[in-house]
Write a protein that binds this DNA or RNA. Structure first.
Lengths: 233, 233
DNA sequence: GTTATAACGGAGAGGTGTCTCCGGTATTCC
DNA sequence: GGAATACCGGAGACACCTCTCCGTTATAAC
């Protein structure tokens, strides 16, 4: 056992590390499968769908899922960026509409549709994304644009003056709950709920709200429970 | 071993069966404790609160809980009759109000309050009570009265003409969700949501709803999942 | 007291879900 | 083709919840 051989092997290993090995084909394939299964199950059963079931649906073992996505948040980041960006695009379109009411009403209906309709993800806007900074960042951008959208509408009298962006929490929660419950029974029922809500938004003959609005910090604290099912420590 | 003794014992046993033994004091005490713990946990954590935790909170073993209340439904029947009757009383009061709008608006606000406020039970009106016929029966009575309340209000133009009692599902779901999420953060926030909803009910603010109303059978099918946690067979 | 027994409560089986470890294998590189 | 190793996937630990069985105990009746 001369010391020479180990040294050579050492060098070889270092070279390998410098030019990293190509990603294994089965790894790539499995990641794709996992993402596709996750998209499907998150849409069908909600963002809390059991990870094991996602692994099974993807045809891999649980170990493989956890290697690719160590936490639920990691999987969320990979899956939910796209729909969140779609949401962002919606606000932008709404902001571009010169008709303020049309902008606001259209935004609400479309964002509800995005969550409620088949293949849409429920609770996208009300789930904690603590460990998913990318998602959080997009949502922050969305929220800033929403504030802009509604303050313009309010300033121009397109909506009732006492409506705040925090009040959007109500339609968001309401829509996801209604959609969840009526999906299989009356898949378009959420629209009626949203249309009713729109009528409560209109400026004409609005009756004053005696209950003060939520503070933004309160809204933040209503976000849905932890991303993994693990108990709090 | 003469056959006489057994015969006497037999008679004694029969007499005992005729005059049943008094209920044991510890049994009574434990039932009270269980009910009180159940009231508390159902209110604090929802109607699906773990039965084991209820047993623990009552200071008894799980066996004792299941002996007194073999199913979750049995416990629900013992605990939820009272609040459902309170709900019934609310509709009756609303029906008695000669001012139709006041009746309807009052009913909605008060029923929301009943569910949302500390010690109230969430989802009382949207949980399946399949194995709790007494609760089911009360709820049916409530629903009949509600139909009466709203059809009068509609007939007299106190609310928008296209609003159906099935649409109440929306405020019910919305209120319980909002309450659930804001309870610890802004315990009165549900009121603002309800007030907004009321404005969508007013006839003078109504814009036509393009989405048709739910059918009563659809509403029935939106009821929340099974009473026990056991998987469906 | 004594006795019969109803009620207790905890151990544990069975189910679901999260997450890890590790022996075996498939893939890449040469 | 062979060697090195990254990746696989299942077994299994842990946690939570439901529900039952059964040896022990408390209570009521006498």
């Amino acid at each position: 056992m001369s010391p020479v051989f180990p040294l050579i092997l050492e060098r070889v290993r270092d070279e390998r590390r410098a030019t990293p090995r190509r990603e294994r084909s089965d790894s790539v394939r499995n990641r794709e499968r996992l993402l596709s299964a996750a998209r499907e199950l998150f849409a069908a059963e909600g963002l809390q769908a059991p990870l094991d079931r996602i692994a099974t649906a993807a045809g891999v073992g649980p170990g493989t899922l956890y290697r690719h996505f160590p936490t639920r948040s990691a999987l969320w980041e990979a899956v939910l960026e796209e729909p969140l960006l779609a949401q962002l695009a919606l606000v932008d379109r709404a902001l571009a509409d010169p008709d303020r009411w049309a902008g606001v009403a259209g935004y609400i209906l479309e964002t509800c549709a995005l969550e409620a309709e088949r293949g849409g993800y429920l609770n996208l806007m009300t789930t904690r994304f603590d460990d998913a900074p990318r998602l959080l960042e997009i949502r922050t951008r969305i929220q800033r644009r929403i504030v802009e959208l509604f303050s313009r509408a309010r300033a121009e009298g397109a909506i009732r003056p006492d409506f705040t962006t925090e009040d959007l929490l109500f339609i968001t929660l309401s829509n996801s709950r209604v959609a969840e419950v009526t999906r299989d029974v009356a898949p378009r029922a959420w629209r009626r709920n949203a249309q009713l809500f729109l009528d409560s938004l209109r400026p004409e003959r609005a009756h004053p709200l005696t209950e003060p609005p939520l503070k933004p910090s309160d809204v933040a604290r209503t976000m849905m429970t932890r991303p993994t099912a693990r108990r709090p420590d």
